[in-house]
């Protein structure tokens, strides 16, 4: 039971980092990244590449965390100066292309069969590392969100032209947000690889992107507490799938499908009945009368 709790906390922490990364991109800046799984996969595959080629684990982590923001800047290049429809399409396509590359080029990290990587033998250590990473990202995101930078990112979310006429370069800010949040997601990917000990393309489909989106939309994309709450809810249903299947006697395949269906339903219902999510953005009040 304790083992399960430790594992669950580790997994929730990893996915919380992904959710905070999406919070920075979508919740604050309004960037519709439908390829959020890409930086996560890049982190994981950096690790897998190192393992498959006999490089040390730190080198794999380094590759993943450096490559992700560079790739991010490359991916958003065609989408900058275009509407968010195109942004969504480009990021979605990039995520799928990365997965297909890993699937079809076995030299990188085993292709369809995947690669085994070093797995943390000590589950507690894994949990502590995951929580540390979560804490760092959380503090970073909080600092950004509550700063003048966060304010300008929100302006970008509302109206890019306004930001530009006020003398800001929207694309510089978008690049900055993308680089920073993709580093986070890649770090989460590195950790995820070492927690599960095995990496294959099927863990990084576009559906994973929407598991992150469900958590973020459900909790409230514009607040950190919101995305954390959403992730806890979504990931608890995810890690408990096995138990639900055992307990109900239904095939686990069916339970997994029902879970995915429930995520879809959540996305729909939240937008219909509570578009700001469970925890809406709080109003920042200032004393205007002070002299």
């Amino acid at each position: 039971m304790i083992d399960f709790a430790v594992f669950s906390i580790t997994i929730i922490a990893v996915w919380s980092v992904l959710a905070i990364s999406l919070h920075l991109q979508f919740g604050l800046t309004g960037l519709v990244n439908f390829g959020q799984v890409l930086p996560f996969a890049v982190g994981a595959y950096g690790t897998a590449f190192a393992a498959a080629h006999g490089l040390p684990a730190w080198a794999g982590a380094g590759i993943g965390v450096t490559l992700a923001p560079l790739l991010g800047l490359l991916v958003i290049l065609p989408a900058s100066r275009l509407a968010q429809d195109y942004w969504a399409l480009v990021t979605l396509g990039a995520g799928e292309i990365f997965r297909l590359t890993m699937l079809n080029v076995p030299v990188i990290a085993g292709g369809d069969e995947g690669t085994s990587v070093y797995r943390f033998q000590n589950a507690d250590l894994a949990m502590v590392l995951a929580l540390t990473l979560l804490l760092v990202t959380l503090l970073f995101a909080r600092r950004v969100g509550a700063s003048p930078l966060g304010r300008m990112l929100r302006v970008l979310r509302e109206d890019e032209v306004l930001a530009a006429t006020l003398g800001r370069n929207p694309f510089r800010l978008q690049r900055m947000v993308t680089a920073a949040s993709w580093v986070m997601a890649a770090a989460a990917g590195v950790l995820y690889a070492h927690v599960t000990g095995y990496i294959s393309p099927s863990s990084f489909t576009v559906l994973e992107t929407f598991v992150i989106w469900t958590a973020v939309v459900l909790g409230g994309p514009s607040t950190i507490t919101g995305v954390l709450l959403g992730t806890v809810i979504v990931q608890l249903t995810s890690v408990s799938t096995r138990f639900v299947a055992q307990w109900s006697g239904l095939p686990s395949d069916l339970v997994a499908n029902l879970r995915l269906g429930a995520y879809g339903l959540v996305l729909i219902l939240v937008f219909l009945y509570r578009p700001q999510g469970l925890i809406p953005e709080r109003k920042l009040r200032y004393d205007a009368d002070r002299l």
Binding site: V155, D159, V161, T165, E281
Partner: peptide, 10 residues
């Protein structure tokens, strides 16, 4: 052109 979901002060 305003940021509608920010306050007047912001």
């Amino acid at each position: 052109r305003l940021a509608h979901r920010l306050t007047v002060f912001q």
